[in-house]
Amino acid sequence: MTGTLFRRVLFGLVALFMAAPLIVIAGVSVNAQRTLVFPPVGFSMRWYGSVFTDAAWRGSLTASVVVATLAAALAVCIAFPLSWFLWRRHAPWARVFQMLGTAPFVLPPVITALGFLAFWTTVGAYGQPWTVVVAHGIFFVTLPLVTLSLGFASIDRSLVEAASTMGADDRTILRTIVLPLIRPYLISGFAFAFVLSLNEYIVAYMAVGFTLETLPIKIFNSLRYGYTPTMAAVSILFVAVAALIFGLIARFGDLPKLLGAWSSKD
């Protein structure tokens, strides 16, 4: 079958291209010596250890995880009531807020970053650690917004009608019907926002670049003083975390469906 052969060759080449840089940094990260050489000389896992034992790297790791958790939570807190309202009520003008939620994701990231830099400077909060949480929360609101809109669209409205006829108010409907059905979409929206916030550089840099080093900022700052195997180890950890989280979403959810609707939101 020529079709299958073509598919195999194409998939193989793309896989090689996508994996090549990751293979090299994985090799570099287990070097026994301090310089970056490939193929690796000796084998050592100490660079992975140093991500957690070195005070500076551990500080960045903690900062990144805290920021990503809070920002993803904020994004969900904004997206949930919005998508609930859009689903529950017929109010076309409220779509404006949906557009506002999508805009930062469509525009080049540097725009949002610069907007926040100007904003925090103007209100005098520039450099405060919490500003990056707000910035990321807004920047990534698109992701829970998309997954939740999709989730709401999949809810059978007759369930809500039945509950409503039997006297349930909005609060009861939300708690007993909507939340259990929407939970997988809520979790994947949170997870998408979390992973992207963990990796985000420019918005974080312009908000708190000189006061708080998140991991991407720390890696970038370290690049100027030369490459170390620790950076490679951190990078591999990032790839692993992302693959693990998306793997879990695929395992417990319907990833093709989730992505199939991703761009049909427009």
Partner: peptide, 11 residues
């Protein structure tokens, strides 16, 4: 989802 920092470093 990889940071541009990481992609740049890897390449």
């Amino acid at each position: 989802s990889l940071s541009e920092v990481i992609i740049g470093f890897a390449w």
